Amino acid sequence: MDFKDAYKWVNLEFILEGFLVTLEVAAAAIALSFLIGCIAGTVRYMKIPVLSQLAAFLVELVRNLPLLLIIFFTMFALPEVGIKFGIVQSAIIALTVFEAAMISEIVRSGLNSIPKGQVEASRSSGLTSFQTLWHIVLPQGLRRMVPPLVSQFISLLKDTSLAVIIALPELMHNANIVIAHNFQTAVPILMFAAFLYFVVNYALSLASRRLENRMA
């Protein structure tokens, strides 16, 4: 193991540049997938005719496909029909599509976990379906969604490493390049990569706990 060569600043800087790409891709995919997932989950919960069935079909379709296949499809299949994206955009789109399907199920389950009696009482008091959702169901459902949502976001951050297959210059891509120049640096470089993943994911976990405590 060559720690001295592995931890040269030029290597660490290169890996940190990749980590920045990882964070940027993850942040964009988290924001987009959360928005789309919330919409899809809410549509399914409210059982809106046609839209609910369409959302259910798309969610089940995506959930039963491997993320790697979706990444390949976005990068290599879409250009065949005239839809072409760059490497970063392809990674963000693929991650967004996959994670939005997962998040929609979390949202739907969270909303469905609210006792039906509360919904019926709200409707009988004169509130519309939307008002009941906004004032009664959503505030309570969000508290129950926080832990699984954060777990999904952590998974998303780790899943960015799969985009190495399309040469996304993210953390593991750059780490592999450093290792390829000197295989003796493999262990220390992978330790450094693991440390970076751990720091961010652990920070997300702590933030989740604090948010849960505030919402309790």
Score class of each variant (00 low, 15 high):
residue 2 D to A: 05
residue 3 F to M: 04
residue 5 D to N: 14
residue 11 N to I: 00
residue 18 G to N: 04
residue 20 L to Q: 14
residue 23 L to F: 15
residue 31 A to Q: 06
residue 31 A to K: 04
residue 32 L to R: 07
residue 33 S to Y: 14
residue 33 S to W: 13
residue 36 I to F: 10
residue 36 I to L: 15
residue 38 C to R: 01
residue 42 T to C: 08
residue 50 V to A: 13
residue 51 L to H: 02
residue 53 Q to F: 14
residue 56 A to S: 15
residue 61 L to S: 10
residue 67 L to P: 08
residue 68 L to K: 03
residue 69 L to A: 10
residue 72 F to R: 10
residue 73 F to E: 01
residue 79 P to F: 12
residue 80 E to A: 09
residue 80 E to K: 10
residue 83 I to G: 02
residue 84 K to Q: 08
residue 87 I to F: 07
residue 87 I to S: 03
residue 89 Q to W: 14
residue 94 A to H: 00
residue 95 L to C: 11
residue 96 T to E: 08
residue 96 T to I: 09
residue 101 A to Y: 01
residue 101 A to P: 14
residue 108 R to F: 02
residue 110 G to W: 13
residue 114 I to C: 00
residue 118 Q to M: 05
residue 118 Q to K: 00
residue 119 V to N: 03
residue 119 V to G: 06
residue 124 S to Y: 05
residue 124 S to L: 11
residue 126 G to L: 06
residue 128 T to V: 09
residue 129 S to R: 13
residue 131 Q to Y: 15
residue 131 Q to M: 14
residue 136 I to T: 01
residue 140 Q to N: 12
residue 141 G to H: 02
residue 142 L to T: 10
residue 144 R to D: 07
residue 152 Q to I: 08
residue 153 F to W: 13
residue 154 I to L: 12
residue 157 L to N: 00
residue 158 K to Q: 11
residue 160 T to K: 07
residue 163 A to Y: 03
residue 167 A to F: 15
residue 169 P to G: 11
residue 174 N to D: 10
residue 178 V to S: 01
residue 185 T to S: 07
residue 198 F to N: 09
residue 202 Y to P: 03
residue 207 A to D: 10
residue 210 R to P: 08
residue 212 E to Y: 10
residue 214 R to E: 06
